[in-house]
Design a protein around this nucleic acid. Sequence first.
RNA 1: CGGGGUAUAGCACAGCCCGGUUAGUGUGCCUGCUUUGGGAGCAGGAGGUCGCAGGUUCGAAUCCUGCUACCCCGACCA
Length: 491
Amino acid sequence: MAKVLTPRSESYAQWYNDLVIKAGLAENSAVRGCMVIKPYGYAIWEKMQRVLDDMFKETGHQNAYFPLFIPKSFFSKEADHVEGFAKECAVVTHYRLKNNPDGKGVVVDPDAKLEEEYIVRPTSETIIWNTYRDWIQSYRDLPIKINQWANVVRWEMRTRLFLRTAEFLWQEGHTAHATREEAIEEAETMLKVYADFAEKYMAMPVLQGYKTASERFAGAVETLTIEALMQDGKALQSGTSHFLGQNFARVFDVRFQSKEGKEEFVWATSWGVSTRLMGALIMSHSDDNGLVLPPKLAPVQVVIVPIYKKEEELKQIVEQADKIASALKKHGVSVKVDDDDKHKPGWKFAQYELQGVPVRLAIGPRDLQNGTVELARRDTLTKEVLPVEGIDNRIAELLDDIQNNIYQRALNFRKENTHTVDTYDEFKKVLNEKGGFILAHWDGSDETEEKIKQETKATIRCIPIDSNPEPGKCMVTGKPSRQRVVFAVSY
RNA sequence: CGGGGUAUAGCACAGCCCGGUUAGUGUGCCUGCUUUGGGAGCAGGAGGUCGCAGGUUCGAAUCCUGCUACCCCGACCA
């Protein structure tokens, strides 16, 4: 079979690029740093959205929509927030074009300069908290639990499809609470939602934990994160949930009157996952033949490929295929019968493997005669011939098996690539030779964290949420450490 | 924003150093026939202002200048 992807062993980065493009997920656009998400890629994103959206609604959130543009003055109110995002903001300065007086094309009309410039949102805390001020007077107005699905812009120097693009799609939850405890609980709840989604739907195991001060969201008191391990041993931050304290309430003057008649600042959270999850999904499961999708997120779960010589045979096979398809649909399984005569079966096999369709059925004249179908699993690349009778039940179960199998496989990979070390030498050695997650003691200081980052490129991915922490001594300074933290080189 | 590279048919590339027929190869596309259980074969055909703007020259894809875009490596980051 002709390989269309660069093998992972040769270049993981190239393999990733090849896969995203060849599987029809996304491509680079005419706009620097901005991708076009193609129909197949978008279909996966839509499935993610649907599941997450349901999870948000079940946890008491409602969707709303806030503006793309944020007045510069709003943005500059929260000092840390500005510092974090200022360097990557797109700015709108004018509102009109005019014909170029010197000839062809159009130019910005200098007379149409905005009184106050707008920032294209890199995130929406400021516009939302400015709005919440008007919505909140009393504790009876709380909590407010809102989510928005939106695009945001962060002007990145170097971009990679899905993993880091100048414009990306995401959801951002923004909640307002009467008490500190309730806000913290909200941030923790949403982290659990993300972890659940990652593990149960994406089949991607994640570590949950706190970010260190240097990795924290700009403007947050605490940032919680889910961290996943990619096949090349690098970590990918896949979702974050922030406890914002009263930082945004203070600068936007959002106060409420408590039951006791006291005026207090509102407590806040925000949380988000983005199209970066697409990158996480790809790099968790896929192989040198292409994408491997968990059945729960696959736009097409089963594809049926007819194999035939004569038109007449095709007709009979498609009849059989349609029968199987409608039986499967009763189980809620999404099926495609590919009777397109543009390509031969071999081409289709390769193509559906590239696109990660979990189960492929092939039906030929021989099967018609024997009452069988050939079933191929994408996750194991194995094939078997099975009776048509009861195939729908068999496949419904198989899809669950596949979902579990790829989760288990990813979990095993993570276990094999998680190492515990006690000395800095050992740390460097493991990092160089194996990569992956490294559990080590750290004294809690910014200086030590920075030193390790400078010397090894590894960062603290998270301080795990651990009910049973193991105290020890920092591998670099020997100072006391409350618990092990997770290091890795990250995307 | 530094360092390197690339720009020629839908896509992937050769040609450029050393200027000179009608700019070529693979793949994809169109037509026909044969094929179809792992990316089919043969025959015929369509498709290019050689990234853009100048310059040198009798003549430029090729040499020179400027610009733009993209890719890779760094710094920054979800």
